[in-house]
């Protein structure tokens, strides 16, 4: 099953890459996608539950606009800090730790990378369910885990 999913995904990727639709190149594409699927079919969809993958993807797509807004905010925040003449007065970095309620690996990774993308915070590491996060100021540090975890919990909840 994983083999077929990987094969289809890889073949789509090949179509975008190749841009040649004659029989010879399409055959090469089928062979290549099959080879990659054979080599690493266990990599892409390893620890997903079988049933609600599509639901998960659709919920994740709804999450994307929000995270894009956060990225824009984060960039403006960094730009403001970088160009501010008295930047060192504004920042007050600290490392904070908190536990998460997200269970799945995907959810944790998505949460970690979302933390990295939002203003003023970067994930340093995940130890089991504990996140170590570097925050630029106390205000953003207090905001964690907060809204984002709620949203991601809705995306990756197991029901």
């Amino acid at each position: 099953m994983h083999f077929i999913y990987t094969f289809l995904l890889m073949f789509g990727f090949w179509i975008i890459l190749s841009g040649k639709f004659d029989l010879f190149h399409l055959t090469l594409g089928v062979i290549s996608s099959g080879l990659v699927a054979l080599l690493s079919h266990d990599l892409l969809f390893k620890d997903r539950t079988q049933k609600n993958r599509l639901v998960e993807v659709s919920r994740f797509v709804q999450y994307i606009p929000w995270i894009m807004g956060e990225i824009v905010k984060a960039t403006l925040h960094v730009v403001y800090l970088a160009l501010h003449p008295r930047m060192k007065d504004l920042i007050d970095p600290k490392i904070i730790r908190f536990r998460t309620k997200l269970k799945s690996k995907v959810g944790r990774v998505a949460f970690a990378n979302s933390i990295t993308l939002t203003p003023g915070t970067i994930t340093i590491r995940i130890v089991d369910d504990e996140y170590h996060v570097h925050a630029l100021s106390r205000k953003v540090a207090d905001g964690l885990p907060g809204e984002m975890e709620e949203r991601l919990h809705r995306v990756f909840r197991e029901d």
Partner: peptide
């Protein structure tokens, strides 16, 4: 090993391999 790096790399490796095969097959063009 690190969960984040591991997970992301697992997603990237198949794409990398397919890209490599594409590069081999399209050396003519």
């Amino acid at each position: 090993q690190d969960l984040i790096i591991q997970w992301i790399c697992r997603q990237l490796v198949p794409f990398m391999q397919l890209f490599a095969l594409y590069v081999v097959a399209h050396g003519h063009h």
